[in-house]
Write a protein that binds this DNA or RNA. Sequence first.
DNA 1: CCATCATTCAATAAAACGATAGAATGATGG
DNA 2: CCATCATTCTATCGTTTTATTGAATGATGG
Lengths: 218, 218
Amino acid sequence: MTSQQALLDTLAQVARALGNGHRLALLERLAQGDASVETLANTTDLTIGNASQHLQQLRRAGLVTAQRSGKQMIYHLTDERIVNLLGLLRQVAETNLAEMERLVSRLFAEDDADGVLEAVSPDELLAGLASGEVALLDVRPEEEYEAGHLPEAINIPLEQLEDMLGKLPQDREIVAYCRGPYCVLSHQAVKRLRQLGYRVRRFEEGYPEWKAAGLPIA
Amino acid sequence: MTSQQALLDTLAQVARALGNGHRLALLERLAQGDASVETLANTTDLTIGNASQHLQQLRRAGLVTAQRSGKQMIYHLTDERIVNLLGLLRQVAETNLAEMERLVSRLFAEDDADGVLEAVSPDELLAGLASGEVALLDVRPEEEYEAGHLPEAINIPLEQLEDMLGKLPQDREIVAYCRGPYCVLSHQAVKRLRQLGYRVRRFEEGYPEWKAAGLPIA
DNA sequence: CCATCATTCAATAAAACGATAGAATGATGG
DNA sequence: CCATCATTCTATCGTTTTATTGAATGATGG
């Protein structure tokens, strides 16, 4: 075996660590912020043991690290670029795989029968924030909001949306965001708020992509 | 299974297609230019049957396409961004995996015992080309050069290096490039030319990365 | 139409992966 | 030190990948 081939094989090991839906889900959760094994297992619908094993694989591939905090192990992404890597993988897959297009359109269709919920691009969002014409709404769980969020974003977890309408400004367009392009939270928030008469759209990306792009966070 | 999970599973299928050293080698060869199954099998040291099977997997993942040309099937990358994806994967792996560092340093050590062969960055190369202070040397096989190369690059395949020294300019620094960061051709060319007294360094990237960056090619 | 060539398909066996259950480890609080 | 809790390790089984072999397919040139 040549050194060349050994390098490609090692690279392949890293890629293979990405080659499982559960592990991708774990990475996406970790992109929201560090978390314990139990938290990760809960948010990805895995048993503790199974989650632990997948996390070991991600660790062997150098994608995550772990450190003890009390009696818990806290995992975190080793590298912000992993978010970019997942984003690029997503782009390539969406462009070239008919199956992806089918799944994505189904995901959108669930909450957007009319196709009217055009997403806001990062550039557009930056412009709107700079001019003060846009208010940001973070509909993720409070825990994830606390771990980091877009500047000046208001946090109303989706479950409490109807109870906390008072926190929303009436004079500006609202842009809702959540965990990323595949996360349905912001879809549903937009749908409900529109029914209540609010002027609201969803952000095309999510918190991890914003952070990975080097944009300011709070 | 949620739509979310179905999406991640599909994404995982694409990642899994990248999770094999032979398939990465095939993709890297395809990044140099389209090729037949036989050509691909030869350059990756696979049997025809085996190469064909791996290519089917890449095709199912939407990473390559094939079309018949006479009695041959010609494969090509579906998306230039696949080169970016591989580059990012490499970056993440090199940063976070000790094993990678070991392998990369071994690869470099083979031809650079003194560590003096500092690579030229893309920015530096662009500046050198603009000012006319640098001559470009492509040491890949003629076939790959013909399929596409950097502007104004001279092609001397490594095997013919000593025979065609006359084609090299004497008045400028020479920058040699080949297939990419893991390709040893330019290492060896630099080593030999230095022994002959030439002022020469190697390009940090290769033809596919140059092309994927949207820079001009010939 | 037949022989040939390039490629793909099909069948097999060895190896790797994935989920589960239960034992083992490591830190904590009394 | 002991009981407890969070996590990891071990063993197992069923499934999926991988390489190899040989047969089948599809296009070409006479």
